[in-house]
């Protein structure tokens, strides 16, 4: 599952880091680090994190890229 976070929008609220700690992690006080290609077993958690982000900064692509289209 591909992810990108708009870090201009992200305000470091860390909801995502609570909901999917294997994918999102705070570095220092407010810098977010994330794994742009999340393991499939994290999909449900990532979806929940994206929905919970108060500034809707997390963009998720549902299926893994089916190649060129």
């Amino acid at each position: 599952m591909k992810i990108v976070v708009d870090l201009n929008r992200c305000q470091g609220y860390a909801q995502c880091a609570f909901l999917a700690p294997q994918v999102f992690e705070m570095h220092g006080e407010e810098a977010l680090r994330y794994t742009p290609l999340a393991p499939e077993d994290q999909s449900e958690r990532v979806r929940r994190a994206a929905a919970a982000c108060p500034v809707q900064a997390i963009l998720v692509e549902e299926e893994a890229g089916p190649g060129v289209r």
Binding site: K2, V4, T35, P36, L37, V60, E61, G65
Partner: peptide, 13 residues
């Protein structure tokens, strides 16, 4: 070393 270079593909909207 936390993410492989080939794993930063952009998600599609």
């Amino acid at each position: 070393g936390r993410v492989r270079a080939e794993d930063t593909g952009l998600p599609r909207r």
